[in-house]
Amino acid sequence: MEANKVLEFRDVAVTYHKGPFWNRSSTNAVKKVNLSVAEGETLGLVGESGSGKSTLGRVALGLIKPSGGSFEFAGLPFDPVLRKEGAMSVVLQHPEWALNPRLKNWVSISEPLKIQTSLTRQQRYEATLKMLSQVGLDPDFADRYPGELSGGQRQRVAIARALITKPRFILFDEAVSALDVSVQSQILNLIKELQEQLRFASIFISHDLAATRYVSDRIAVMLEGDIVEVAEAQKFYEKPDHPYSQQLYATIARNA
């Protein structure tokens, strides 16, 4: 299936330097990664803290420049103007901090529109209401503040914000990790449905293989900066190849 490639990582490496220039120490957060994500596809990125998955996610958003190799978005090197076009968005881990507590929900959700377009306030408000219903929230959430919402509701609001510009790519970085189990699956189902409707490409980063395999088409397993295995999600319901992937798999299958 040769669908359009939205993201392409070629030999991407990211190295961090610490300390003054006479005593530099370096860490290789990402060593050499080759990956691509197509339109309408969710690539799961699984690994533990320090594996480099979050760093790779930041490269995908253009927030970090690779120290080696190249990253392309829709076939061209990353250009900040993509942001102004609303090509990408992000949903992060902590529902408490996903939204500015001082702003009403509708202001947060429609902020991308305010930055990128010249829609009037009324138009933005209406776009927000449409978005709220798409993520399964009552319209009266629009005028409330984040502090009045539960974790799951805040993540929905964050997802609404991520979708409002109809982006080509959404990054989910530990987006359900801080939620209760019964709420996690609400959000995972929502992500799946929305992707089917809207066909955005996405990378789903998580340390939780169980959640990742449910929501992803393909999964890449990262260990200490390297990708040790890439396979269809199905594989991770049976038995993955690499010993490290097997370790992760074992913690879910423990109860079988």
């Binding site: 992000v90 992060l92 991308p112 991520a162």
Partner: peptide, 11 residues
């Protein structure tokens, strides 16, 4: 995270 989200949106 809301700061990151704003930056990604082009703020």
């Amino acid at each position: 995270e809301f700061v990151t989200a704003a930056v990604v949106a082009g703020a």
